[in-house]
Design a protein around this nucleic acid. Structure first.
Lengths: 354, 354
DNA sequence: TGTTAGCACTCATTAATATAGAGTGCTAAT
DNA sequence: ATTAGCACTCTATATTAATGAGTGCTAACA
């Protein structure tokens, strides 16, 4: 047997691409005869068989069992996504239709971001037939715009914080003693003068500690108020994840095994599991930070039989969130990436203009 | 053949009860021999067979196929729940343990009601092995306590509404023209004097329309502000449903058929579907409004193969919500009812005391 | 030297068949 | 009224056989 470096020449690539394409559609192992007819290479099945043997040796495809066709490995998918996949020449019609449908959704008065996100998730899910998730925007880089304290009961204080992007957060706290109007006014002044313009990150870091020290006569109250402010602006970022179409996974036999399905759907229900998909730091590129995780590449163990595609969206400067699409490894990468691009672009346009 | 009214005598009841008990445990059709040994009636299987034939004729049980045992019909379950079911003599230990576990959860500082509800749902789900849902409290009967308008940007107005139970709702609206401090002050006065103390229902009914008419110089702005207030207090009550353990249904073969499972889980994901389970008007009885829907009795079509048990809880006077447990028709009714009673009582205690 | 036809072989899927067992309904005896 | 006994039904399970898709390898070919 001749020992030499095996090359992934052009023909092999074409064959691999055909195999993957075919598998993406059917979900069945694909054999040499199919490829022989499928491609324009005019090669006999026997030749294809030889090439396939090579591709298997190179680790791009694998046989589920001895006398079956080949299916792509994670490595194969990776190559496909990185090199082989072409921007699909989708009919403009379809694209337009999709965008229209989206606009229709968006035009319905969605004052609450939450509603918008839930609708987006649903739209994406029905459009792609995969499971989707959208995180609420992270505001940590945004600045506090306005703080207001007001008494709602003798010993209860309402704290409202507005941050860039006009996100409102609030808490009600118990004050140990009743506060008179004068004190509340002072507290208001203090908070606004010292916290406005700071980002949430900055506030959490240490400003509060300093402020507490500086607090004069109302030391105790200032402390608890500041704590409450800090909490109000930090809390619950991890909870706000909207999902949809989780039951779409039943469409894909390779995922709808009872145990797998249970685990997967569970992950979607326990949304905190999904947080590891969130892009922590979003580098601004024109690709909307699209990332493709194939099989075991994904950060979530229970999704090792899936592929995950994530993108970032930006409602306003600095108000960003993550969109994720989760499907079988044989997901239609072209379409998904394309859809995500369209969606994020669209969002940018709609919201940036306003 | 003798024609006579068939009686559901005591022995038949005992047998029916045994059949159902047994079926609840195993999920398998139960045969005459089993019952013959299971009960203390000291009857032979042949006798049981005769009785079973009668029970079938009466519509309480049915044979899935000719040579199988019997399973209860919805009518059978209904009789069981209404008449045959006894307060199970659960070991106090277990009950205590359960409550303790619950308290442990509750003691963790759960300032946000949402977090509490989500945790409760989860706790219930793991405890019962069924799917659970909890609605956020409805506040429609509660009164507006406090309204505050403040300017966050030149032409943006923040509206904060606090209602009984210290629920805070807010919106930001665009004002057509910039408002000066004086105007805002006036608006504040107007809202507070005319809306405070009214229930949400009342406000929605017609107060706003009247107010708009009375509005003097700032007619336009008053209108939009009031609309915003109305919207802030109405919005999103239907969205706030927390679910957990939906994948538990996979444990029950009769539900884990792919299509059924898909439909069911979907219903849980599209939470609005669940709203029909909410008790619209809660009559105050010591049974916590516990209701049992068996099979086709349930208001939700997709759950016609399930049973649903609902109860109401009350965090504070007038702040009520619904808890639902959804499982197979052969759910452990005793345990579920019992658990719900314990939970709601416990909630009442914890929150009423404070 | 790369390509192809041909053939023996493997293995999953499907269908066909047999077997075992649970449970019933009915009859006749107690 | 109750029960033992038996023939009968129907599901579930295991066994076997048949089918066919697909491979790897060899030898012939351009």
């Amino acid at each position: 047997m001749e020992v030499r470096e095996m090359e992934l020449d052009d023909r092999k690539k074409k064959i691999l691409k055909s195999i993957i394409r075919n598998y993406l559609e059917t979900g069945e192992p694909v054999g040499s005869r199919t490829i022989s007819k499928f491609t324009d290479l005019k090669l006999s099945s026997a030749t294809i068989r030889n090439e396939m043997a090579d591709l298997e040796e190179l680790g791009y495809i694998i046989q589920p069992h001895t006398s079956a066709g080949r299916i792509p490995t994670d490595k194969g998918y990776r190559l496909y996504v990185d090199d082989l996949m072409e921007e699909k020449e989708r009919q403009v019609n379809e694209k337009e239709k999709q965008v229209d449908e989206m606009k229709e959704f968006l035009i319905q008065k969605v004052d609450k971001v939450e509603t918008l996100l839930q609708q987006m998730a649903r739209l994406l899910a029905t459009n792609t037939n995969y499971a989707t998730m959208i995180t609420a925007p992270q505001y940590n880089k945004n600045k506090v715009k306005f703080i207001q304290l007001s008494r709602v009961e003798a010993e209860k204080l309402l704290i409202v914080v507005v941050i860039d992007g006009n996100i409102v957060k609030n808490t009600i706290i118990d004050t140990v003693e009743a506060l008179d109007d004068e004190t509340i006014l002072q507290l208001n002044m203090l908070c606004n003068t010292s916290l406005n313009g700071l980002t949430i990150d900055e506030i959490n870091l240490g400003v509060i500690a300093k402020l507490k020290e500086q607090a004069g006569v109302h030391k105790g109250i200032v402390g608890s108020v500041l704590d409450a402010v800090a909490e109000a602006i930090t809390v619950d970022d991890d909870l706000r994840i909207y999902t949809s179409g989780t039951t779409n996974i039943f469409q894909y036999p390779e995922l709808s095994d009872k145990n797998k399905a249970k685990e997967l759907i569970n992950a979607f229900e326990e949304k905190r599991v999904l947080t590891s998909l969130v892009h922590q730091i979003v580098q601004k590129d024109d690709n909307h930070g699209i990332q493709v995780y194939i099989g075991s590449e994904t950060p979530i163990q229970t999704m090792k039989d899936c592929s995950v595609v994530t993108a970032t969206y930006e409602l306003e400067e600095g108000v960003q969130g993550t969109i994720g699409i989760i499907g079988p490894k044989r997901m239609d990468y072209d379409k998904v990436v394309d859809t995500l691009k369209t969606l994020t672009t669209q969002l940018d346009m709609i919201y940036k203009k306003t």
